[in-house]
């Protein structure tokens, strides 16, 4: 039985090239199939009408009602539940690792772009922070159509590089991000765990809701290498380690699993939604996670 590659398969998505295309295809594909998904409870229909007051946006006037009543009424959607989302995308050098699939950064791009598209479609305002050991780009949250293009453009132009210093960045952002909102982090979290946890705690202290997408390559999770290999640090190429993978595999996996487990536990303790996203997994799962979160917040 042959399986048709899913539209959400990250490798298939890479054929679309531009992020705008990727994001649109992902979101429209997601929404068109949403009745099949676990997210059936979600609706984007308006909740009620209210009388028009000067200053309201003309586009929200329900002209059908006017036709019937000769009165101006505004369609009220779920806008009372709209949120401010900040997309934090890790663009450090380690995110540039690619194994058999796309790179982690490219995967983060697809995720972030798709989520931004969906969020803006939901009338949420979305901002973007692109960083490595420093903030490279920062777009405050907006809900305009222009915002999406700016986010996609910023994401497209970015290349992973630089060193990973997540904790100081997140820590600083915790003080900079205004208003209570949702912070969606796209990162491999390759930093000192205590510092990471401390930064997450700071973000949480600001009463932000946090979605942590822990983006990992399958090779980082299984360490499938067999031949003698010189591992060269993506962020500091001078750092080399010549090892026999068969010898170090057990220790590596133990360290890695321990890190992931600790991060998961700490995230859980901080009521942070923690999700491991493999670069060979369909990207729609991230969209579903966001929608569940939004659903829970609404009701």
């Amino acid at each position: 039985m042959t399986t048709t590659p899913s539209i959400f398969d990250p490798t298939a998505l890479s054929r679309f090239g531009r992020l705008s295309l990727v994001a649109r295809n992902v979101v429209e594909g997601f929404l068109s199939g949403i009745h099949k998904s676990p997210y059936k409870g979600f609706s984007v229909e308006f909740a009620e009408h209210r009388q028009y007051y000067p200053g309201d946006e003309i586009r929200h006037i329900d002209w059908r009602v006017y036709g019937k009543t000769d009165r101006y009424y505004i369609k009220e959607h779920e806008e009372e539940t709209n949120l401010h989302a900040h997309l934090l995308v890790d663009a450090s050098g380690s995110m540039g690792y690619r194994g058999e699939t796309i790179s982690k950064f490219q995967y983060a791009q697809y995720l972030a772009a798709s989520l931004a598209y969906l969020m803006l479609h939901q009338r949420d305002s979305v901002g973007l922070v692109l960083h490595d050991e420093r903030v490279r780009s920062m777009l405050p949250p907006r809900s305009t159509s222009k915002q999406l293009m700016q986010i996609l453009q910023t994401l497209e132009q970015a290349k992973p590089g630089g060193e990973t210093r997540l904790a100081p960045i997140w820590d600083r952002l915790a003080g900079q991000l205004r208003g209570r909102g949702m912070i969606v982090i796209f990162s491999d979290c390759f930093d000192q765990l205590p510092h990471l946890v401390q930064a997450l705690r700071h973000l949480r202290h600001r009463r932000h809701e946090i979605l942590l997408f822990h983006i990992l390559a399958p090779e980082e999770m299984t360490f499938p290498f067999g031949r003698r290999t010189q591992f060269r640090h993506l962020e500091t190429p001078a750092q080399l380690k010549l090892v026999d993978p068969n010898v170090v595999r057990e220790a590596y996996l133990k360290n890695f699993e321990s890190f992931c487990q600790s991060l998961r536990i700490n995230a859980s303790n901080l009521q942070i939604d923690y999700h491991v996203m493999r670069t060979d997994e369909p990207v729609d799962r991230a969209l579903g996670v966001y929608l569940m979160k939004r659903l829970a917040r609404r009701g």
Binding site: G93, S94, M95, G96, Y97, K104, D188, F190, E220, F225, R227, R228, T229, Q230, F231, R232, H233, L234, E235, P237, Q239, K241, L242, V243, V248, Y252, N255, F256, F259
Partner: peptide, 12 residues
Amino acid sequence: FDTLDWGAMQFL
């Protein structure tokens, strides 16, 4: 030996 650009150095 093979040479591989790697991000998860901290776990080696």
